[in-house]
Nucleic acid binder design. Sequence first.
DNA 1: AAAAAATACATTGTAATGCTATGTATTGTG
DNA 2: CACAATACATAGCATTACAATGTATTTTTT
Lengths: 111, 111
Amino acid sequence: MNSEFVQKWQSQVKKGTLAFILLNVLRDNEFYGYELIEQVKKYTTIEIAEGTLYPLMNRLKKEGLVTSKWVEQESGIPRKYYQLTAIGVETLDEMIEYWQSLETSIKKLTK
Amino acid sequence: MNSEFVQKWQSQVKKGTLAFILLNVLRDNEFYGYELIEQVKKYTTIEIAEGTLYPLMNRLKKEGLVTSKWVEQESGIPRKYYQLTAIGVETLDEMIEYWQSLETSIKKLTK
DNA sequence: AAAAAATACATTGTAATGCTATGTATTGTG
DNA sequence: CACAATACATAGCATTACAATGTATTTTTT
């Protein structure tokens, strides 16, 4: 099961989907990078590679959708926390709208 | 509205989604390339560029998910009709399964 | 009748993105 | 003391959508 084609396809589906999921996760709380991977793994069936996440978060930051701040800890490596900006919220709303129309279309097709 | 970021994002979402949609469309009927673009435009909010469709159909063919046959017409340019193969149907079923789990996860996140 | 638009196929080069591999540094565990 | 886990990051590769361009025929408009 899960032929090679399907595996590659799933990777393609992530292009775009990941940013959408991450912005949604950041809507209610701020999280640090490594934690985002864990959160997404917990609440979806999706695994985000570290080599995917960090460049992605940098892009979102560059686009002004999130900000970040370093938080030192008593012990351990400092964490970079991400917060959704006002522009991020607006953008996310537009994305949700598009996603829902897409989802509706696909639901019609798959039955 | 529809900021530049969202436009680029929509294009990224199509990576993977397009193949999924096309296979779904081909489940019940065979269509030729140009017709597939029209069908998808009609039943979804998605526009597929010709420069996207023809290479995509070739990939699906190479992977054995579809076959094609030329059909001459009394007048006009010959049409290349695509049919879903047995492997195509199996693959599509796996894709539907993945899509539904993804959709369920995202639905939880967006509300 | 000529010009323009539509039909129907296709390829090339570009930009964007996820993934593997790799790297650094610290802390916790067997 | 070695190894796994935590936490950040980058570089190169493969994949894919899209704009631009091309060919050829047919239909519509002027």
